[in-house]
């Protein structure tokens, strides 16, 4: 690990000013916030991240889960994944988020990992994690060996010719389906970013993964009020039974009335270069009967633009089955 200056932030302002010195908040940032450490310390050991300054935000007052006046939920940036997953309101009203969190990693990691950290979780692409290899995300312009190499786990949606790295988060998939908003404070004040606009597609700048700029500190995430009567499911498919990243996952929030779908929010995980909300699948379902045939149609729509790499073509069918089954599980209640 490269050496760095360790700074303990005493307040938000100090943390933001400290980070504002950075030239970028993206790959290779020279200032990094650390909370749980499960992504950053991991990547620092691999020399994939080599910040000169590390700002510890664990002592900032960002660890509360509270209801909002509009009936939604406000989740602090440093709320640990375990605490969020087991929070009574989350279990009750945002079950898809609880299930997604509990399907990710292990209890030990969930006890460390935070809400904001999980929003910024980095890809598991093996080429990204090995500094001896080219990687456009890690070293722009160096090439993407994954395209001709080991790409079984990599993305089928949202990839570019420069990068096919999958976003590995489970939490973000559920938050995409829940239409979360990410609240950021930065040197120029605060702003609210809908999760759909938070992560970026790789395009020709795969090193840029989010809209964050130097000094931006995620302070909290808000969820809108739950859709009353909605049913929520997170289904994750992988090789082994636990403690593994998704090959495909689906977060489903649907409301059925009189046998018809009257509200649907759908997102996919493990298949996209970002948490993958699928308006196309939602459109197929809306106002239609909640039947397995329609669920399959929605799944076909969700994967319509999927593009296979040499080893991951199966994920197209797998993701379809995953989504169709998640919808079926939700419909059954």
């Amino acid at each position: 690990m490269k050496t760095f200056e360790f700074i303990r932030a005493a307040d938000l302002k100090g943390a933001i000013e400290g980070a504002a010195r950075a030239k970028t908040a993206q790959q290779g940032a020279d200032v990094r916030f650390v909370a749980g450490g499960t992504t950053l310390i991991d990547l620092m050991k691999l020399n994939v991240e080599t910040p000169a300054h590390v700002i510890d935000i664990n002592r900032l007052p960002l660890d509360k889960v509270e209801t909002t006046p509009d009936g939604g939920l406000r989740i602090g940036a440093t709320v640990r994944n375990s605490d969020l997953a087991h929070h009574p309101i989350v279990k009750q009203d945002y079950a898809v988020l609880s299930e997604a969190l509990l399907s990710g990693a292990s209890t030990q990691l969930r006890n460390m990992a935070t809400t904001a950290g999980n929003l910024l979780q980095r890809t598991r692409c093996m080429y990204f994690r090995e500094t001896a290899m080219p990687c456009n995300k890690r070293k722009p312009g160096s090439g993407c060996p994954a395209i001709a190499g080991s790409n079984r786990m990599l993305a089928i949606l949202g990839a570019s010719e420069h990068c096919i790295a999958t976003n590995p988060s489970d939490m973000c998939v559920a938050m995409a389906a829940l239409e979360a908003t990410i609240h950021v404070q930065g040197p120029k004040g605060s702003r609210a970013i809908p999760i759909a606009g938070f992560h970026l597609l790789p395009g020709d700048t795969p090193q840029r993964e989010t809209v964050l700029e130097p000094g931006d500190l995620i302070t909290h995430v808000t969820l809108p009020a739950p859709i009353s009567g909605s049913r929520q499911v997170y289904l994750k498919l992988r090789d082994r039974a636990s403690y593994e990243f998704a090959l495909a996952s689906a977060a489903v929030v649907i409301k059925i009335a009189g046998g018809n779908v009257i509200n649907a929010r759908i997102a996919l995980g493990g298949v996209g270069t970002k948490p993958w909300r699928s308006p196309a699948a939602e459109a197929v379902l809306l106002s239609q009967p909640a039947t397995p045939a329609n669920f399959r149609k929605a799944a076909e729509a969700a994967l319509r633009d999927a593009k296979a790499q040499s080893e991951n073509g199966f994920k197209i069918e797998l993701a379809k089955r995953c989504l169709a089954h998640a919808l079926q599980m939700a419909a059954k209640g």
Binding site: M126, M133, G149, R240, A241
Partner: peptide
């Protein structure tokens, strides 16, 4: 890895063993 010859899944996250 075909290009570099690296055992590319050289971690306990990528070399999957039973849990």
């Amino acid at each position: 890895d075909r290009e570099t010859g690296a055992p590319i899944n050289s971690s306990l996250a990528d070399y999957v063993m039973a849990v």
